[in-house]
Design a protein around this nucleic acid. Structure first.
Lengths: 224, 224
DNA sequence: CTGTTGTCGAGTGTCGACAATCGCCGTAGT
DNA sequence: ACTACGGCGATTGTCGACACTCGACAACAG
């Protein structure tokens, strides 16, 4: 369950990376937000967090900026930061953007390459299945991300990958709340991905594109 | 020549906005990089900049993080920051990404809407023409950005707009170096945009898409 | 009772200093 | 001559303190 380079920015030259203080704080806050341990709209107080983590406010600030870049929090100058409150519209925007980028990646893949990738996606699907069995929500989200990443990375457009990765924060929040709140069967989610992979492997581009689009539309994201 | 909200993030509720120190520094540094006053690959020393601007290194750091978000500088932990060095590949990646996003926006526009937008684009084109006459490079870049922004914003997908805007930094750098180094006639650039607008107004979607793609390919970005 | 102004506390913005780390370069050993 | 080592200067990482701003509440005038 590798770190999976959460924002796609980790260019781990050496596998062992010294995580800087801000990075660590960022990770923790990120996971808290994604797990709804901090409710949407709740304010993030620098002082309180600094004391809790035993670091200075400077460090907290740096972490917050990172969170802001992922659109997970909203920073209002002089007024503080709050966990972002995603409207139904926002949710569909994120899905649309993600679909758009994946569709572009898809367009550049030959049929043979797609088949090849489908195999790799199947491997990730197996992991997702395992997570579903264990009821591991975080694992599910990570598997989903990894699965889709296969496609985007295959595009050979690093910048597209970057932009796509920038969506993962919000997308993760979306998925978790969807899987958690609506009590959708995790197995159902696995099944949907299996279908997608099947289309990916055997269908012509246009059909895969349609399947991908539907993949992102099928889930109904409810407003808070 | 309005501020044009450089990164599309200014939600000026009150017209008077207190520009924070980091924001100011960010603007200055950004313009320096875009004008090649700081050569690509050159290191940005926090201490030196802090002294030059009369602010603390904390402030400089915040500004640098912003620059990093725009992919204008590269921050290596413990090793400092350097102005990004764009390879020919990078350049074409930026163009491709920008084309992709604009194409998506385009796809959602009816013929009538396109015609309507073409009128607005013509207004910006006039400004661009003025800048070309004055040899105002910065103005040209800004006009280009504004012109293309018309399309993207019309898509009604704020997230797409955001991602597109995130490309503006690198795109600006690209344009300047291209216009400056290769001595392309500014008028030629204006003309190319005029053609694009014409296609936008009168052609069917597929043709506009083709024109747009060519618009981004026509210029040859040379490696440093 | 209502609208306006003064004051206060909470919280962010910025700073200067200290600590940790990296790359350079002189030195020594082979 | 070449490589390994270690001290040293330069530069970044982090901190705690102070300054400023904003919103809320209270006091007051009409």
């Amino acid at each position: 369950m590798a770190p999976s380079s959460p924002a796609g920015r980790a260019k781990n030259k050496s596998v062992l990376r010294h995580l800087s203080l801000p990075e660590s704080v960022h990770e923790i806050l990120r996971s808290r937000i994604l797990n709804n341990e901090i409710p949407a709209g709740a304010p993030l107080l620098e002082g309180a967090l600094a004391e809790e983590f035993g670091v200075s406010r400077t460090t907290i600030r740096a972490a917050m900026r990172e969170l802001q870049g992922e659109r997970l929090i909203e920073i209002t100058p002089r007024r503080g930061s709050t966990v972002i409150r995603m409207s139904e519209t926002d949710a569909s925007e994120v899905c649309f953007a993600r679909y758009t980028l994946e569709a572009v990646a898809l367009k550049g893949l030959t049929r043979g390459r797609r088949r090849e990738l489908a195999d790799r996606m199947d491997e990730v699907l197996a992991v997702m299945n395992l997570c579903a069995a264990k009821g591991d929500l975080a694992g599910m989200v990570e598997a989903d991300t990894d699965l889709h990443r296969v496609v985007v990375e295959a595009s050979g457009h690093p910048l597209i990958v970057d932009m796509w990765a920038g969506l993962n924060g919000q997308m993760g929040a979306l998925m978790r709340s969807s899987l958690d709140r609506q009590r959708i069967e995790l197995d159902e989610t696995v099944h949907r991905h299996a279908e997608l992979i099947a289309a990916f492997r055997d269908q012509p581009i246009a059909a895969v594109d349609a399947a991908l689009r539907e993949h992102y539309v099928r889930t109904e994201w409810d407003d808070e």
